[in-house]
Amino acid sequence: MNTIELTGEMIIMLLPLLAIQMGLTIYCVIKIMKEGVENLNKWAWLAICIFINLIGPITFLIVGRKRDAS
């Protein structure tokens, strides 16, 4: 089985990446809750934003945001 060993240095280097990912996810979750969604239902977009790395929130921001609210 493929295992990736996480070292302290690696975690420190990954922190900005984690910050971008978390920031985008939280931003999208707030947008979904406040403004509503398009093309898919709310729960599907929530799952996409939370579980799909980077591409999920970006896809939501491009095609999932409710136009009337923006």
Binding site: M10, M13, L14, P16, L17, I20, Q21, G23, L24, Y27, L54, P57, I58, L61, I62
Partner: peptide
């Protein structure tokens, strides 16, 4: 936001 986040994400991810 979409463009800058994706550029920065790959800029950090690739060297790691």
């Amino acid at each position: 936001l979409v463009i800058i986040a994706s550029f920065l994400f790959f800029a950090i991810l690739t060297p790691i």
